[in-house]
């Protein structure tokens, strides 16, 4: 949609999926932003790692469970989701507790590949530093 060179955009998710609206409205920006054909990644730090937790059930709260929408990210070419290792460990979580999000690589015979990459804090800092734009939600 935009003519100029592609920019590196990161959507940095810092908050739990429930309790506030930031996570779901942040995800809405990612899905809309996918139409702009930029170099996009997402990062999950702090309570933001809970956004990717498998088996979310909001039925008792009366709030819509939007976590299935993360499974659509691969279809939107959003296929680099960086999760901070320390944030997982601090919450007693591992990658096995997260949704098994994948994407299909059209340059590799549509091989299904994992979208989630666990990175340590120092590596995430380098990734953030390399972006043109960081959206904070």
């Amino acid at each position: 949609m935009s003519a100029g060179p592609r920019k590196k955009l990161m959507y940095l998710n810092r908050r739990a999926p429930g309790g506030t609206i930031y996570a779901v409205e942040g995800l809405e920006v990612v899905l809309i932003g996918a139409a702009f054909d930029q170099d996009v990644c997402m990062a999950f730090v702090g309570d933001g790692v809970y956004q990717l937790k498998a088996g979310q059930d909001t039925s008792d709260s009366g709030v819509k469970n939007f976590s299935p929408a993360y499974r659509a990210l691969g279809d939107y070419d959003v296929n680099r989701l960086y999760v901070e290792r320390e944030s997982l460990e601090e919450r007693g979580l591992g990658v096995d507790d997260l949704m098994p999000l994948t994407w299909e690589d059209e340059d590799d015979d549509w091989a299904e590949k994992p979208s989630i990459h666990v990175v340590d804090r120092a590596e995430l800092a380098r990734l953030i530093d390399a972006q043109d734009v960081v959206f904070n939600f």
């Binding site: 949609m1 935009s2 920019k7 955009l9 920006v29 932003g33 702009f36 930029q38 734009v133």
Partner: peptide, 14 residues
């Protein structure tokens, strides 16, 4: 929301 993403792309800083 496209207006937000466009601003991020078009501007020197968001």
């Amino acid at each position: 929301l496209g207006q937000l993403v466009e601003a991020a792309i078009e501007c020197d800083r968001l």
